[in-house]
Simulated scan of single mutants.
Amino acid sequence: MGCHRLRVPDRQVLDGIFFVLRTGCQWKALSATGICSSSTAHSRFQAWAQDGVFARLWNEALQDYEDLIGLDFDWMALDGSLHKAPLGGKKNPAQPHGPRQRRRQAQSLD
C-alpha cells in the first residue's frame, strides 16, 4: 500500500521518445501531448541510451530488414564532415539591447 504513482508503461514512454525524436519538439512540450510527462520520457531516454537499448533496437531493425528485403551495401556510401561550411558566414557581433540601452543614454547626470 504505497503512496507512489504507478510506473508509466515502457511502450507509452517509448512512444513519447519517438514523438520527440521524429518531430523535433522540445522535451518540455511532450507533456502537452498527453503521451507521457516530459520528465519521465527524458529520464528514461537517458537511462535507456546509457544501457544501449537504442543501439540494440537499431541492430534488431537492421537484421529484420536484412531478413525481409536484404541490405545491398554495394550502392551505399557514407559521407561526413567536421569542418565549417565555406560559405557559412561570420558570427554576428554583440548588438545593443535597443530600448534598455537608449534609456540609459538618455538619463541625465544630475
Rank of each mutant, 00 (worst) to 15 (best):
R5W: 04
Q95R: 15
L87F: 15
T33M: 03
L87W: 07
R22M: 04
M1D: 13
A55Y: 00
G80A: 15
P9Y: 04
L21A: 11
T40Q: 05
P99C: 03
G70Q: 04
D10R: 12
V20N: 04
Q63C: 04
L109Q: 07
K90P: 01
Q50S: 14
H97P: 00
Q105S: 08
W48Q: 03
M76D: 05
G89S: 04
H83E: 15
I35C: 02
Y65I: 08
F73S: 10
S43G: 11
N92G: 09
G89P: 02
L57F: 14
D74Y: 11
L21H: 12
N92C: 12
A49G: 00
Q46M: 10
R100N: 06
L78W: 13
N59R: 12
G2V: 09
T23Q: 03
I35D: 01
L68T: 13
Q101H: 10
G80M: 07
A61G: 09
L62N: 06
G89Y: 02
D110G: 10
N92Q: 14
D110C: 05
L82I: 14
A61H: 10
Q63S: 12
F19P: 00
W58Y: 14
H97K: 13
D67N: 11
Q105N: 08
L82D: 15
R44V: 15
K28N: 11
K91F: 11
L87M: 14
V8W: 02
L6V: 09
V8T: 15
A41D: 02
L82F: 15
G70P: 06
R103V: 07
C3I: 12
D74M: 07
Q95N: 13
G34V: 00
F18N: 08
S37C: 09
R7T: 05
R102M: 06
Q46L: 13
V53L: 15
F54T: 06
W48C: 02
F19T: 05
I69E: 06
W75T: 08
L6G: 12
C3W: 07
R102V: 10
P93A: 11
R56I: 06
L14Y: 09
D110I: 07
N92Y: 11
A94C: 09
I17V: 06
R11I: 10
A94V: 13
